[in-house]
Protein backbone atom coordinates (compact mmCIF):
# COMPACT_ATOMS: atom_id res chain seq x y z
CA UNK A 1 0.00 0.00 0.00
CA UNK A 2 1.12 3.57 -0.55
CA UNK A 3 2.41 5.31 2.53
CA UNK A 4 0.62 8.45 3.65
CA UNK A 5 1.90 11.65 2.12
CA UNK A 6 3.75 13.99 4.46
CA UNK A 7 1.20 16.80 4.40
CA UNK A 8 -1.50 14.36 5.39
CA UNK A 9 0.48 13.21 8.40
CA UNK A 10 1.07 16.80 9.41
CA UNK A 11 -2.58 17.85 9.11
CA UNK A 12 -3.77 14.72 10.81
CA UNK A 13 -1.50 14.89 13.78
CA UNK A 14 -1.93 18.62 14.30
CA UNK A 15 -5.65 19.06 13.72
CA UNK A 16 -7.78 16.02 12.99
CA UNK A 17 -6.26 13.70 15.54
CA UNK A 18 -5.00 16.37 17.84
CA UNK A 19 -2.96 14.77 20.62
CA UNK A 20 -4.81 16.52 23.38
CA UNK A 21 -8.31 16.96 22.03
CA UNK A 22 -8.73 13.64 20.24
CA UNK A 23 -6.13 11.30 21.70
CA UNK A 24 -6.12 12.53 25.30
CA UNK A 25 -2.36 12.59 25.42
CA UNK A 26 -0.68 15.20 27.56
CA UNK A 27 -3.81 16.09 29.48
CA UNK A 28 -1.92 16.78 32.71
CA UNK A 29 0.16 19.66 31.32
CA UNK A 30 -2.86 20.67 29.26
CA UNK A 31 -4.81 21.24 32.46
CA UNK A 32 -1.88 22.25 34.60
CA UNK A 33 0.09 24.66 32.47
CA UNK A 34 -2.65 26.34 30.50
CA UNK A 35 -3.61 29.16 32.81
CA UNK A 36 -1.29 31.72 31.20
CA UNK A 37 -0.70 32.14 27.49
CA UNK A 38 2.96 32.89 28.04
CA UNK A 39 3.78 29.71 29.91
CA UNK A 40 1.49 27.69 27.66
CA UNK A 41 3.31 28.70 24.51
CA UNK A 42 6.71 28.11 26.09
CA UNK A 43 5.62 24.73 27.33
CA UNK A 44 4.30 23.95 23.86
CA UNK A 45 7.60 24.88 22.29
CA UNK A 46 9.55 22.79 24.78
CA UNK A 47 7.30 19.78 24.25
CA UNK A 48 7.51 20.12 20.48
CA UNK A 49 11.27 20.20 20.68
CA UNK A 50 11.47 17.21 22.98
CA UNK A 51 9.04 15.39 20.68
CA UNK A 52 11.28 15.96 17.70
CA UNK A 53 14.34 14.71 19.53
CA UNK A 54 12.41 11.77 20.95
CA UNK A 55 11.02 10.82 17.56
CA UNK A 56 14.53 10.69 16.21
CA UNK A 57 15.93 8.75 19.14
CA UNK A 58 13.11 6.24 19.51
CA UNK A 59 13.08 5.59 15.80
CA UNK A 60 16.70 4.58 16.09
CA UNK A 61 16.10 2.52 19.23
CA UNK A 62 13.23 0.74 17.57
CA UNK A 63 15.41 -0.21 14.61
CA UNK A 64 18.05 -1.45 16.99
CA UNK A 65 15.62 -3.51 19.08
CA UNK A 66 14.13 -5.05 15.95
CA UNK A 67 17.55 -6.09 14.72
CA UNK A 68 18.56 -7.42 18.10
CA UNK A 69 15.20 -9.14 18.45
CA UNK A 70 14.26 -7.80 21.85
CA UNK A 71 10.93 -6.04 21.34
CA UNK A 72 10.07 -6.60 24.99
CA UNK A 73 12.64 -4.00 26.02
CA UNK A 74 10.90 -1.36 23.94
CA UNK A 75 8.99 0.37 26.71
CA UNK A 76 11.96 0.49 29.07
CA UNK A 77 14.23 1.69 26.33
CA UNK A 78 11.77 4.39 25.28
CA UNK A 79 11.25 5.73 28.74
CA UNK A 80 14.98 5.72 29.37
CA UNK A 81 15.60 7.60 26.15
CA UNK A 82 12.91 10.14 26.93
CA UNK A 83 14.17 10.71 30.45
CA UNK A 84 17.71 11.27 29.29
CA UNK A 85 16.58 13.45 26.39
CA UNK A 86 14.68 15.69 28.75
CA UNK A 87 17.72 15.77 31.02
CA UNK A 88 19.95 16.75 28.12
CA UNK A 89 17.56 19.40 26.90
CA UNK A 90 17.34 20.74 30.42
CA UNK A 91 21.10 20.98 30.72
CA UNK A 92 21.40 22.50 27.28
CA UNK A 93 18.82 25.17 27.96
CA UNK A 94 20.34 25.91 31.35
CA UNK A 95 23.68 26.53 29.70
CA UNK A 96 22.53 28.47 26.69
CA UNK A 97 19.55 30.40 28.00
CA UNK A 98 19.21 30.69 31.75
CA UNK A 99 16.24 33.02 31.25
CA UNK A 100 14.28 30.40 29.32
CA UNK A 101 15.33 27.80 31.83
CA UNK A 102 13.94 29.86 34.64
CA UNK A 103 10.74 30.55 32.73
CA UNK A 104 10.15 26.87 32.07
CA UNK A 105 10.90 26.03 35.67
CA UNK A 106 9.50 22.72 36.78
CA UNK A 107 7.77 22.13 33.45
CA UNK A 108 10.92 20.78 31.88
CA UNK A 109 11.40 17.80 34.20
CA UNK A 110 7.64 17.29 34.07
CA UNK A 111 7.90 16.62 30.34
CA UNK A 112 9.44 13.27 31.25
CA UNK A 113 6.16 12.10 32.68
CA UNK A 114 4.18 13.76 29.92
CA UNK A 115 2.38 10.93 28.22
CA UNK A 116 2.30 12.90 24.98
CA UNK A 117 6.00 12.18 24.51
CA UNK A 118 5.86 8.47 25.22
CA UNK A 119 2.58 8.30 23.34
CA UNK A 120 4.27 9.81 20.33
CA UNK A 121 7.04 7.23 20.45
CA UNK A 122 4.57 4.36 20.76
CA UNK A 123 2.19 5.61 18.07
CA UNK A 124 5.03 6.24 15.70
CA UNK A 125 6.24 2.68 16.22
CA UNK A 126 2.72 1.27 15.79
CA UNK A 127 2.21 3.17 12.58
CA UNK A 128 5.57 1.99 11.27
CA UNK A 129 6.64 5.39 10.04
CA UNK A 130 9.96 5.85 8.29
CA UNK A 131 12.34 8.47 9.64
CA UNK A 132 11.00 11.37 7.56
CA UNK A 133 7.40 10.57 8.43
CA UNK A 134 8.29 10.09 12.07
CA UNK A 135 9.74 13.58 12.21
CA UNK A 136 6.79 15.11 10.40
CA UNK A 137 4.49 13.25 12.78
CA UNK A 138 6.41 14.60 15.78
CA UNK A 139 6.29 18.10 14.37
CA UNK A 140 2.56 17.92 13.72
CA UNK A 141 1.84 16.43 17.10
CA UNK A 142 3.93 19.08 18.82
CA UNK A 143 2.20 21.86 16.91
CA UNK A 144 -1.18 20.37 17.70
CA UNK A 145 -0.30 20.10 21.36
CA UNK A 146 0.90 23.69 21.39
CA UNK A 147 -2.20 24.89 19.57
CA UNK A 148 -4.53 23.16 22.01
CA UNK A 149 -2.56 24.44 24.97
CA UNK A 150 -2.44 28.01 23.76
CA UNK A 151 -6.11 28.15 22.77
CA UNK A 152 -7.00 26.75 26.15
CA UNK A 153 -4.80 29.28 27.91
CA UNK A 154 -6.43 32.16 26.08
CA UNK A 155 -9.88 31.05 27.14
CA UNK A 156 -8.76 30.38 30.69
CA UNK A 157 -7.15 33.79 31.03
CA UNK A 158 -10.49 35.23 30.12
CA UNK A 159 -12.35 32.94 32.46
CA UNK A 160 -10.19 34.13 35.33
CA UNK A 161 -12.09 37.37 35.11
CA UNK A 162 -15.44 35.67 34.79
CA UNK A 163 -18.08 35.53 37.45
CA UNK A 164 -18.11 31.73 37.56
CA UNK A 165 -20.00 29.78 40.18
CA UNK A 166 -17.48 28.59 42.79
CA UNK A 167 -18.36 24.99 42.18
CA UNK A 168 -17.25 25.18 38.58
CA UNK A 169 -13.99 27.02 39.06
CA UNK A 170 -10.87 25.04 38.33
CA UNK A 171 -10.71 21.68 36.67
CA UNK A 172 -14.40 21.32 35.91
CA UNK A 173 -14.46 24.51 33.87
CA UNK A 174 -11.20 23.67 32.12
CA UNK A 175 -12.56 20.28 31.14
CA UNK A 176 -15.74 21.81 29.80
CA UNK A 177 -13.71 24.22 27.69
CA UNK A 178 -11.55 21.33 26.51
CA UNK A 179 -14.72 19.48 25.52
CA UNK A 180 -15.99 22.42 23.52
CA UNK A 181 -12.61 22.80 21.85
CA UNK A 182 -12.69 19.11 21.08
CA UNK A 183 -16.10 19.51 19.46
CA UNK A 184 -14.83 22.50 17.50
CA UNK A 185 -11.85 20.49 16.30
CA UNK A 186 -14.26 17.87 14.98
CA UNK A 187 -14.81 20.30 12.15
CA UNK A 188 -11.39 19.32 10.86
CA UNK A 189 -12.34 15.66 10.64
CA UNK A 190 -11.88 14.33 7.17
CA UNK A 191 -9.29 16.93 6.24
CA UNK A 192 -6.72 15.16 4.20
CA UNK A 193 -8.76 12.11 3.34
Amino acid sequence: MTPEPHWQILLNSALVNNFVLAWFLGICPFLGVSNKVGTASRMGAAVTFVMLVTALATWGINMLLDTVGAPYLRLIAFIAVIASTVQLVEMFIKKTSPALFKALGIFLPLITTNCAILGLALLQTNKGYDLGRAIIFALGSGLGFTLALVLMAGVRERLELADMPDLVKGTAASLAVAGILSVAFMGFAGLGS
Partner: peptide, 15 residues
Protein backbone atom coordinates in the same frame (compact mmCIF):
# COMPACT_ATOMS: atom_id res chain seq x y z
CA UNK B 1 -25.70 25.25 30.75
CA UNK B 2 -22.53 24.28 28.95
CA UNK B 3 -22.30 27.27 26.68
CA UNK B 4 -23.09 29.95 29.17
CA UNK B 5 -24.17 29.31 32.75
CA UNK B 6 -21.12 27.21 33.55
CA UNK B 7 -18.88 30.18 32.87
CA UNK B 8 -20.90 32.67 34.86
CA UNK B 9 -23.67 33.60 32.46
CA UNK B 10 -24.01 36.45 30.01
CA UNK B 11 -20.78 38.15 29.14
CA UNK B 12 -18.47 35.45 30.38
CA UNK B 13 -19.18 32.71 27.87
CA UNK B 14 -16.05 32.18 25.80
CA UNK B 15 -18.01 30.57 22.99
Amino acid sequence: FLGKALFGGLGYNPF
